[in-house]
Design a protein around this nucleic acid. Structure first.
Lengths: 134, 134
DNA sequence: CAGTATCCAGATCGATACTG
DNA sequence: CAGTATCGATCTGGATACTG
């Protein structure tokens, strides 16, 4: 019973065994980062724009985000190579952010999961209702 | 430029538009929950076990988790219908947790993303190195 | 055994004010 | 314009102690 391959999960587990401690931790960190409040939203805004956007454009399009959180989110994304930051030596200053190819790849891999959750949301609602009315 | 379909992301966006506010929020919440420190680990332990596990077995197998965090994680998973909790009226008490079919589906949909990140971890390391040495 | 209750340290995030 | 600095409310998670 324990040795049958019940889920595709085992494949991922095998893959992880081939990673160093650091790499495994980084993998987790990237996944965790994805679920941070604003990360996906910011990335999708940049992806949908299809062109570099200034800080203030992003700030507008990601409704509800604070300047501070946007700065932090963009720095993290830049750090991981998911977006680029280009500064122009002008007055007033101009900074443009754009999604990178890896960033797009990332979104493409997140999308199926997201879609599945969205499609399954009815089942989750049901589960919660049942749970709550006990 | 803006009207071309550049990413699969647009599909997900379209899907989300068909959801109510509540459903959209719940979708996000499920995704966010996935990235919580212990969620995936606990789920994969239950999936790999292939049979119900007692609280203390899970506590052992998820190294480093505290009792409190495990309780919280399991409650959330139970609430969303991803694991079941079965209590036996015995002394000493026995409680068994098992992954549900939806839970397995969920893991199956997380796995491709996880694998991609694991495979791409080298590129992320590179990005960070470059970022740090500036 | 399987929790709950309590305390506490650290992280997070928004709001606000200030600067090159 | 695009940040940084700072403060405070909120949340998170671990350690510890206690209970049906």
């Amino acid at each position: 019973m324990k040795k049958t391959t019940k889920t595709k999960w085992d494949e991922a587990a095998a893959l992880c065994d081939g990673l160093s401690e650091d790499q495994d931790a980084l993998t987790r960190e990237i996944i965790t980062g994805l679920a941070d409040k604003w990360t996906l939203w910011v990335m999708s805004v940049l992806a949908e724009a299809g062109e570099p956007l200034r800080f203030s454009r992003v700030l507008e399009q990601v409704e509800g985000i604070s300047q501070k959180s946007l700065t932090k989110t963009l720095r993290q994304l830049e750090r991981d190579g998911l977006v680029t930051r280009k500064m122009f030596a002008e007055v007033p200053p101009r900074v443009e952010y754009a999604i990178t190819p890896i960033g797009i790849e990332m979104l493409d891999h997140v999308e199926p999961l997201w879609s599945w959750v969205a499609k399954s949301v009815g089942r989750f609602q049901e589960a919660r209702t049942k749970f709550d009315e006990r």
